[in-house]
Design a protein around this nucleic acid. Structure first.
Lengths: 155, 155, 155, 155
DNA sequence: TTTT
DNA sequence: TTTT
């Protein structure tokens, strides 16, 4: 068992693609920063760790629709290291597969949001109408609350 | 959003009941211990915190079938504080609603395990056959992996 | 081992007191909300769980100085259930002992903040100047990075 | 803020080295497995994710002294991705920097443990006596409780 | 590449 | 009330 939790800001707009079966897949770069004062020097230090997130299904769609560069989110997920070949050499890429996401606010705004939203909306519809949601039944995730900590027991 | 993770040992055998709709409900008392050496005295200190867990559905069944006093488990869940009246006074009871559970081993054994398992098996079947699993469709949980961190995406 | 992580908003301003040894102690009530759409009714549901937080040392001070009703924070901590007698009856109170805290934004502001800050500042100085910081060297926590599950508070 | 928690078994004995300042550094490969029954096929599936852990200070020493291939541990830590050049190409390596560790049991034993322990003991003493513990005072970690997200390692 |  |  292993899990990751992270709270940070998107380094850029999410990239949403669709798998062959029509499943939405979002890739997000998340900046997780920490500040503290060094015990010896007494100076403020800041360190940022960048996490590569990948989300699927409904979570991916929500990311595409509501998140943008600078958005603050909290996520829960799992580590996944993929092995691949490049230039004849074995390489590894570590990602966080997002299991649940919670939005914590948009950046204070810099003007061209409306613009972007329009663009994205268009793109999405195109992409989605094309491969035709074979993705349906995968609603294990859809309509789900923010956290996998959900399925509320009715008694 | 809030969540609890805990790793500890059962203080006693799980108690499994069934709701009116036939849903299994398990109550578990979990001892979470910590040891450290006090910085000043240099002495070993141990502190145990007892958590009241409650689990539902398949997780509750698994607890009833596989866990016993002393079993070590790892759980993930959420805090839930219930309000109730007792002797005309308002009281609060805080529990951890278990969302996923992972077994980490049984205690080194003390003899009367077989006994217990037989007893429990019997009880369970009785209870379950009675109210007839109206509980069915609640399989959001059933057949699930140890962790909500699951539904593996097929590509 | 057990831990809690939570993200929510303060239900009211933090209460900061000082222990006999001069250690700052903050009590905070945190509303952790969750929204989801019910799978059957399709309706939006919201549920809020209130957590009682207690923080010590530098973390407590920071809470007193920077947080107010409505502030959004992320915390990490541990469960602690205290037993006490009231009206001749045993009762239990469950709190989250905060180990680390991260501020996520203030409410949009409502005017009487300056007021509050002045009050608190005054209190703090009084309390602190009185018992004389026996609390000193306890700065294991001060200047610490965001996350630290450490310094065990001796009271 | 980001953190990782993981529970798994060591793929091999820990490797403990010492930094120039005399700080112990342990590298550990952790197998985190998950089992579940596939919802469609009904078959048991198992997937293992390998995490590269690195620990410092007292935690590293404890790993070297008490862990071996097969040991089960629970850890809490943070992701850290290092960038390096190899064959003129930029590569990334993602590790989990362990902040706290809890031992959950040794493998049932296969004979050559005594051997190994002797070896390691020897190594450690040599390494440590050589560069002379400039590492000393860094005992923020030593004698610490199980959980601590703190002392930032300066290298 | 983010944010406070 | 547990365990190491």
């Amino acid at each position: 068992m292993q899990m990751v939790i992270a709270l940070g800001n998107l380094g850029k707009d999410p990239e949403v693609r669709y798998s062959q079966s029509g499943m939405p897949v979002a890739n997000v770069s998340l900046a997780c920063s920490e500040k503290w004062t060094d015990k010896q020097s007494g100076e403020q230090v800041e360190k940022t760790e960048w996490l590569n997130l990948v989300a699927f299904g409904r979570t991916a769609e929500i990311m595409g629709e509501y998140l943008k560069k600078g958005s603050k989110i909290f996520i829960q997920g799992k580590l996944q290291t993929d092995k691949y070949e490049k230039d004849g050499q074995t390489r590894y890429s570590t990602k966080v597969v997002v299991k649940s996401m919670q939005m914590l606010g948009q950046p204070s705004g810099n003007g061209n949001n409306g613009q972007k939203h329009v663009d994205r909306g268009a793109n999405q519809q195109n992409s989605r109408s094309a491969p035709q949601p074979a993705y349906a039944g995968h609603s294990a995730d859809s309509g789900a609350p923010d956290f996998d900590f959900d399925d509320d027991i009715p008694f």
